[in-house]
Amino acid sequence: MRIIQAAAIAQAVRDACIEACCALPADVLAALTQAEAAEEGPGKAVLSQLLENAALARAACRPCCQDTGMAVVFVDLGQDVQIVGSLEAAVNAGVSAGYREGYLRKSVVSALGRKNTGDNTPAVLHLRLVEGDSLELTVAPKGFGSENMSRVYMLTPAQGEEGVLRAILETVVSAGACACPPCVVGVGIGSTMEGAALLAKRQLLRPLGQPSPDPEAARLEREALSRINATGIGPMGLGGKTTALAVHVAQSPTHIAGLPVAINMQCHACRHATRRL
């Protein structure tokens, strides 16, 4: 049994909030650089601006985008870890400190009264109990330009793979410029309604462009990416070859009567930072 203090978790969450907002991961920068080289006209101008913006943000340790999102926190907790204090309170304390001390925008309000909570809490916490005696956490600040454009479809089994592809295309096309393309598209297929949605969100954390080890998912990823980029929506919807940087698909067994598909749209600022305790 290993002991981890709640305060250490709060500190890790705080640091990860700031890092995620200010420093785009290397794989995202590489994908944007590659897209910039391939584009022309307004699309190229947009991508050059994004690369310059990312460099400015990283150098100043300031957020690349003013929408510093809602903090989605994934925790993989080793079952041989004992936490001293409350995990949930520690995660929220970390988000509160990160957003205040990092001068990040506080964008969280009560759902109906629209009253700002003041410190960007509560976080959305996804906890998974795993083997081992360590704790790994990833903070993925989620902006709502893209989150608003995400969808869940409850398809019938008869609609099959082609139905899944149509659902992905329909989501990306109706999102258009609003999701801040070039996007990363996370797709969760199977399970239940909420199971598919969480599976889709987890796909946004995968390294960009690394195909799924599941050959069926990898085939869908290739086909969906090629259809999405043939739409010509382009960077920020101004036209071009790059509407998505990547499509990441995962599947999970589901019921004989159903084919849930969740599509989580992610803007080009595919932000996340990880800490291991």
């Binding site: 601006q49 310059e52 400015l56 929408d67 803007c267």
Partner: peptide
Amino acid sequence: LAATGGAGMLMAR
């Protein structure tokens, strides 16, 4: 006029 979404630092500059 379209500003580039996500280019927060570039616009602030």
